[in-house]
């Protein structure tokens, strides 16, 4: 599985909670969130676009930092 790093403009636990729920709903992903650094690492075989669109559902700005 590929590990991707995304920067998500999260500002509070409501944001990281929302990111957690949308990713759990998507399924087939393993992820880690660092709220202070505004980073989300996702391990998944899904397309980056799909992961990106899923993260954007939270209504926050999302940037892809590449694979890690």
């Amino acid at each position: 599985m590929t590990k991707h790093e995304f920067e998500v403009a999260m500002t509070c636990e409501g944001c990281s909670g929302a990111v957690t729920r949308v990713l759990n709903k998507l399924g087939d992903v393993k992820f880690e969130i660092d709220l202070p650094k505004k980073l989300v690492w996702i391990e998944s075989d899904r397309e980056v676009d799909v992961l990106m669109e899923t993260l954007k559902k939270c209504g926050k700005e999302v940037k892809y930092n590449g694979t890690k």
Binding site: C15, G17, C58, G59
Partner: peptide
């Protein structure tokens, strides 16, 4: 699940 004003805003 909202915790602050920024949650409300989004």
């Amino acid at each position: 699940g909202m915790t602050c004003g920024s949650c409300v805003q989004s």
